[in-house]
Write a protein that binds this DNA or RNA. Structure first.
Lengths: 240, 240
DNA sequence: TAGTGGTCTAGACCACGGG
DNA sequence: CCGTGGTCTAGACCACTAT
């Protein structure tokens, strides 16, 4: 009766739930079957179910509340890297005003494989969004974003004139993973004008490509005036 | 028989071992008592001990091997951020040559609270090390480091003329945590000359302050030519 | 081969908190 | 109240591997 399929019982339960979360079948806030229900489903003891759910909670994928049950957590990326990039939240914390201003919006077929090489079917349509993040009227970042419309078709009908697409996308696409590249550069004339800095001044640039199960959702480049922005990260041996 | 001290049994075991690792009483590679030994020490069942050790392993603090036992793991920071910064490893992987060249070495009392504000007792002596990281003869980074000699007294007698201090320090000080700040800037004349780039070119700068239990070990600034270096990070909801 | 971790059980009592 | 998770037990068998 013991599992012998090269993968242990609790690992199978863990993997099943993880997959359902990653694919979006279970979305943030959704309830996960209780331990007793999972005992019946998998035909194992409560300890084994508990081990899987405890590990999922430790990994930040679910949250468990007594009497209420277990629920899919919000993606951790929203709580770490995004916190650095969520200007609205930053501004609110500091008691300052935040505004997003859309500069350009267009839909075009994806022709040139710009930026990093990522596998996209030919003919894919992409929504290009350029905008400025301003705090107290000062431009903190120029955002140049591409949204793959086959991955997020709802974006086609969404108005981004005052709503930053970052948060909107996080609500639309559950549980993604992302590659971040941080680099530096110099402001050309056009960028300098948009950011309100001198031509030739230093820029801090964050490129992020967000995927969901090998499917690219969005690519974004956030261009910050080096004088106004830094990335701060805390690392310890336990949580990376 | 049951723990009632507001903290559960496995949490106490977890915390005890964690503390011994963080304080350096247990160092990377050291063996942790076996589950049976810990059962006797704490007077609890093997499942409870196992829960604590499994959690420590999941957190990356220990590694468990059948028949051999459980051992203190190498700090994760060495496996993530350091991998990006360990030029010797990067060069070896790419089949290219690596060299570290010491530019300056001096010991001085810590007077000005340079860089970030960190609490250091007055009169603390600090070892200043400036050096260049070169790959195939090209300068990839200028490193400016401060080592707190009361935290790492052995550094006073160590020769850093060809050995990069980063790896050496990792071996000396087990299990630290660190704050990273990534920024951008422009090369002044002196920096440009050392890096072999034009004055006014873009720089990518990483500042890292490494601590151990609230005691600062070392501060380092790695200054990269923006054209030669980027930071790449992979994030997913599970591992942050 | 023997010691170690990996897994699992079939219960139990307790703490919390929503209804 | 009572369903949920949190914790714990006293075993058991198995898999791996250092010796």
């Amino acid at each position: 009766m013991s599992g012998q399929a090269a993968v242990s019982f609790h690992q199978r339960i863990y993997g099943d739930i993880e997959r359902r979360v990653l694919t979006g079948e279970l979305r943030p806030g959704d309830r996960i079957p209780s331990e007793h229900e999972l005992m019946a489903v998998y035909g194992c003891s409560r300890m084994t179910v508990s081990k899987a759910l405890t590990a999922l909670a430790a990994a930040g994928m679910i949250e468990r509340r007594r009497r209420a049950g277990s629920f899919v957590a919000r993606p951790r990326i929203e709580r770490t890297v995004m916190e650095i990039q969520d200007f609205a939240v930053e501004a609110a914390r500091a008691g300052r005003s935040y505004a997003y201003r859309l500069l350009a919006r267009r839909i075009e077929p994806l022709a040139e494989p710009e930026g990093s090489a990522f596998p996209v079917p030919a003919g894919t349509e992409v929504l290009r969004l350029d905008g400025l993040h301003q705090i107290d009227g000062v431009v903190m970042a120029l955002e140049r974003r591409s949204v793959m419309l086959d991955a997020v078709p709802h974006a086609r009908d969404t108005d981004f004139t005052t709503t930053a697409p970052g948060r909107w996308l996080l609500q639309q696409v559950p549980w993604s993973d992302a590659v971040h590249v941080i680099s530096a550069g110099l402001a050309d004339a056009a960028t300098a004008r948009l950011l309100g800095v001198d031509k030739g001044s230093a820029l801090l640039i964050l490129d992020r490509e967000t995927r969901q199960t090998a499917l690219t959702i969005t690519q974004v480049r956030l261009i910050h005036p080096a004088a106004l922005y830094r990335f701060v990260g805390h690392f310890n041996p336990g949580n990376g």
